[in-house]
Design a binder for these strands. Structure first.
Lengths: 216, 216
DNA sequence: GGCGAACCGTACCGTACGGTACTGTGAATG
DNA sequence: CATTCACAGTACCGTACGGTACGGTTCGCC
C-alpha cells in the first residue's frame, strides 16, 4: 500500500535491481518457501538490514519483485502497416504465441503462484498488481490490434473487451491454470504454435467479417 | 501418489469427515496460513495426536481434504432425453453455469490456491489430484454431452478433447485466474447466466451443424 | 469391577523464520 | 588524518509452527 501512489515502478538503484534479480531467481527455483529474507540476503551478498531498509518488510520485497519484473516485460506495439486479412491473422497468431510463451515463463508462473498464495491474506494487493501490470498491459496490445482490424473492416464486434475476452479464452483455456498447478509445461511448449493457430482460426470464424473469412 | 490405486475416496470415518470439514472451513476463511495443525485440532475439538495418527502429517491432511471435497461434488449425468437443437443448447448453458459456479465456490478457490501454492515444492501432487478429481470429472459430463450432440447430428468435431477445450475457454477465459488472484467474485456471480449463454452461443457457431445454428 | 483402546487437552521440544541491533570495513569527503 | 556514510556480516530475540509425549477421561467388552 505504501507504493500505491506510484504510477510506475519506484525506480530502484542498480544494486537493488541486482538484489531483486537474485530474489526472483530464488523464487523461481525454490518456491515461496525458499524465499526467506536470510536466503535472499545470502544469494544477493547483501545484509538483511539493507533489505529492510530498502524494501520495508518482506511484503515490500514481494511487491518490489512484481513491479521489477513487470518493468522488464515491454509490450511492444507492432501495428504499423495497413492490415489485410492475411496480416491480421498473422499478427493475431504472433500475439497468441507471445501470450502463451509469457504465461509459460518460469518467472511468470512463480510470481502468479506467489500472488495467488497471498490472495487470501493480504487483500489481493499483489494479485491486483499482477493483474494491472500483467494482463492489462498485454491486453492493450491485443486491443489495439483488434480495433485496427475493425477499422480495416476485417473484424466485427461491439465490445472490444468482450472480443478480447473471447480471444484470450480461445488461446489459453485452462492451460495457464494447469501450468500453475504444476503440470509439466516443457512438454506442451512445442504445441504453442499449433494452439495459437487454431485459436486464431476459431476467433476469426466468430468475429471475422465475410471478407476476412475467405480461407479454408 | 499413495492414493492413486484408490478409485474413490479412502473412506474416512464420520468423525474424520467432521474434522476434514472443519479444516476446509478454516482454510476457506483464513487461507493456508491459518491452517495450522493446532488450529485444526482446536476447531474440530480433537487432539493434534489424533490428527497425526489419522492423516500421517500435514501434507496427508491436505491430500485428505482435497479427496474429501472431491468426493462431495457429484457429477450428475443428465443426458436422458433425445437431443434437439434447443435442448442441446439448454444443456450446454446449464453446464456452463454449473461450471462457473463450481469454480467460483469458496472451497474450490481455497483448494486451488492451496494446491498452486504447493506446486513448487511437492512435485505437484496436490495439483494433479485436484486436476484429476476436479476438472477431469466435470469434463466427463461435458464430454458425454458433446458426443450426444454429435450423435444427434447437431455438433461437428473430430477431437472431443479439442472441442471441450474450446468450450471451456469460451466459458471461463481468465475468470478463474482472476478470482484466484483475489478479484471480488461476488460482483461477477450475477453475470454468470449471461456469460454462459454467450459462451454457448459462440461454441455453437463454431461447432454446430447447419441444422443447429438456425437461430439468431 | 477390571481392562484396554481410543481419544481429548495440553505441555513440551526443536527448529526456522521475520525483524532488529551491533560491529567492522571500505570508500568518499573535508 | 578525522568524519561520515553505506553497507556486509553476524549475532540475537520473539514467536510460531510441525511434530511428539503424557496424563486424564470415556466407552465398550470380558
Amino acid at each position: 500500500m505504501q507504493l500505491a501512489a506510484h504510477p510506475q515502478q519506484p525506480d530502484y538503484s542498480p544494486r537493488q535491481n541486482d538484489v531483486l534479480d537474485s530474489a526472483l531467481r530464488l523464487l523461481v527455483d525454490g518456491g515461496e518457501k525458499a524465499l526467506t529474507t536470510a536466503s535472499v540476503a545470502r544469494a544477493a551478498n547483501c545484509s538483511k538490514e539493507s533489505l529492510y531498509k530498502w524494501f520495508g518488510d518482506r511484503d515490500g520485497l514481494l511487491s518490489a519483485m512484481i513491479g521489477f519484473q513487470a518493468s522488464k516485460v515491454r509490450t511492444f506495439d507492432d501495428t504499423a502497416e495497413t492490415l489485410t486479412a492475411a496480416t491480421l491473422q498473422e499478427h493475431l497468431v504472433l500475439f497468441a504465441r507471445d501470450l502463451l510463451e509469457v504465461l509459460a515463463g518460469d518467472v511468470s508462473l512463480a510470481l502468479n503462484r506467489l500472488a495467488i498464495g497471498q490472495a487470501s491474506r493480504d487483500g489481493s494487493k499483489l494479485g491486483s498488481m499482477l493483474q494491472e501490470r500483467g494482463r492489462r498491459q498485454i491486453g492493450k496490445r491485443a486491443g489495439a490490434l483488434l480495433e485496427a482490424g475493425r477499422d480495416a473492416g476485417l473484424l466485427v464486434f461491439d465490445d472490444r473487451d468482450d472480443a478480447y475476452d473471447t480471444l484470450y479464452g480461445l488461446i489459453v483455456s485452462d492451460l495457464h491454470l494447469r501450468m500453475l498447478l504444476g503440470e509439466d509445461s516443457g512438454r506442451m511448449v512445442k504445441d504453442f504454435g499449433r494452439r495459437a493457430e487454431k485459436a486464431v482460426s476459431a476467433f476469426l470464424r466468430l468475429y471475422g467479417s465475410e471478407r476476412s473469412s475467405a480461407q479454408s
